[in-house]
Amino acid sequence: MTKKLLTIFKKTLLTLAFPVGMFLVMWLITAVSGVNNFVSPIIMRQVLTNGSLTTIIALAIYLQFKNGRFDFSGGATMILTAIIAGNVTYNAGGNFLMFLGLCVAVGVILSFITSIIYSFSRVPVIICTIAVTLVYEAITYLIFDAKGLNIISYDIAMFGKVPFIFIPLVIAVIVFLFYSNFTVEGKRGKLLSMGQRSAVNIGIAENKNVITCYLVTGIILGLGALVYGSQNIISPQSNLSTSSILFSYIVPVFIGMFLGRASVDAVGIAVASIGMEIMNSGLDCLGVGGGGVQQIIFGMFMLGFYAFSGQFEKLKNLFMRKTLKNTI
């Protein structure tokens, strides 16, 4: 029993190493630069709010990733979901629970449409989702007088703030973990992603699995839309501009996939998101937030981390001969 406890302790330590390390580094840098407002409740709250949003979106992106697909339409689905659900809730005078419900419902419906188009058109998933992205973006111009969404200062935007933001976050993590670890379709999805052809031969119905997986992604994207719409003013989108959402939230996915090996992938992503937000907030405090410098640091960090984790794998292989057998 103590051994088990020890492993859990070790795993927790390894997982938390990234955000804690990031915090210490940023703290040191800000302290040296004479900025003393880095360690403050406001910053911590900002880290938690932004980190929660990042986690939810990253989970949605990662769920498709994990199932072997690169889904380009995630950002567009989220934006469109937020616009529809937010405006409907507002116009109907609904409360935050209605907003939550509608977000999930619309997210699921849009994802369902995407999955239907993909599985019946049999167009390669990137191309198919690019096309879907264009359509969803175009729809943002056609509905609600192309107003987009602006509800951040209403009560229905409650889920955008600490502590309520943890509710969609926890739901998203639970849905993610539950689907991928405990459900039949989750297991099938794992088999399909690791060996698509074999799994189909064995008799796993791929279309059904794709659709189920998209439905679950729809729930998480809906939650993402809920938080995103509660925190941001959304304007209509065009020409794949939503891909920038995808690209900026994909970095925590990369990092989280690596960190997740110490424990659970979803936790890795949450921890990576928090760590990245600590970095962003630190940069904000230093006065380089939002500008070109931040982008450059962000890019450097991503490449550095990816390179490191790549080498890490090679180092590990040196000590484990087993992989040799598999390559032949």
């Binding site: 794992k190 088999l191 690791m194 060996g195 074999s198 799994a199 031969n201 064995i202 598999n326």
Partner: peptide
């Protein structure tokens, strides 16, 4: 026709 990355039982 086995699928790597998954357990034997799976």
């Amino acid at each position: 026709n086995t699928i790597s990355g998954c357990t034997v039982a799976e």
